[in-house]
Amino acid sequence: MKTENIASGANSVSFKSKGINIAGVLYVPENFDSSKSYEGVVMTPPFPQVKDQVMANYGPKMAERGYVALAFDYNSKGESDSYEPNFRDDENMTRKWEDLRNAISYLGSLSFVEGINGIGFCGGGNIMSSTIITDLRVKAFASVSAMMASDMIQFANRNAFIQQVKAANAARQKMFETGEPVSHDYFGYEDPDYLEKNPDLSGTVAEGYDYYGTGRGGKETYPNFTNVLISTVFETAAINPGEHYADKMIQPYCGIVGSEADTAICTKAFFDKVTSEKEYHEIKGASHVGLYDIPENINKVVEIIDTFFKKHGTI
């Protein structure tokens, strides 16, 4: 962990999580002065993104508002190391919880950071909520297009859930016996004939392909990203303690969604359970993915988050 070369703008940083080297980017305000104090922000990305995608859009904007914002790649993803070299792109939620806690620790170790806030995007809201219920170093939490209520997604079709988990269990068994990774294209977006095979796409599914299946947000533009994941993902994807302990969360919460997002119900279901101070905001005319990379929407979201964090600030 090196902090002596931090300067205004985007800084490449790293820290350890259970012995694994985690790569990050620390976005720092203009005219940064290490002798001063700044509010910190730790960000968690949409599933299964790397730090170069959505967080690279929001990090500089938060720095413009005077925050020190941290984006990072989870273990085995992007530029971070893996627990085993050939087992990369393992979307294991329990490992992610640990990486997030160590990212919080990293921010807390910086002499110029006083107070830590959290922003969770899409599935990153799920990870953040599940972590901060027992990590009170994060004092305020905002989510953007968050898929918080995983029960209504993962368990909506019981038979589908069973088949997904059985396939994940079989992959785990094979990997244990062979020592080789078993992976699959989680969304199916790697298929060059995806649109032809799925002519009736709508809502978030159509948006997902428009983002992850094209140069807009896919590996053509972000080479460290991939839709191909270790096949045990379904074992932990359904685990979201934050959803079930929302009424125990003590941090103030701000949920932000697009008014046209069919996933907004997930944020609203979580929001309704929260008993701490809370706010709910809709960005008019925006969709789920529309809050990822459309500058006009990003500016509106950042304005809301900045106001919310300042309301609960420590500096």
Rank of each mutant, 00 (worst) to 15 (best):
N5W: 08
A7N: 10
A10T: 07
G24K: 06
P29K: 11
S35W: 08
V42L: 06
K51C: 03
V54S: 08
M55E: 10
M55D: 05
P60E: 03
K61A: 14
E64I: 00
A69Q: 02
A69H: 01
K77Q: 13
D81I: 00
Y83E: 13
N92Q: 12
K96N: 12
K96V: 04
W97Y: 14
I104L: 11
S105Q: 13
S109V: 00
L110K: 11
L110F: 12
V113I: 13
I116A: 05
I116F: 02
N117K: 07
G120F: 04
I127F: 02
S130A: 08
S130K: 03
T131M: 06
T131A: 09
T134S: 15
L136W: 09
V144W: 06
A146M: 04
A149C: 01
F155P: 04
A156L: 12
A156C: 07
A160E: 12
V165H: 06
A171P: 06
R172I: 03
Q173H: 04
M175D: 02
E180F: 05
P181K: 07
G188M: 05
P192H: 05
P199C: 00
P199K: 03
D200M: 08
S202P: 00
V205H: 02
D210R: 12
T214M: 06
R216W: 03
G218V: 04
K219G: 11
E220S: 14
Y222D: 07
V228C: 00
L229D: 00
F234P: 05
I239L: 14
P241S: 05
D247M: 11
K248I: 00
M249S: 07
Y253I: 01
C254K: 04
C254V: 00
A261D: 13
D262C: 01
T263Q: 12
C266E: 11
K278F: 04
Y280E: 03
H281D: 01
K284A: 14
Y292D: 08
I294M: 09
K300N: 12
K300M: 15
E303T: 13
K310Q: 14
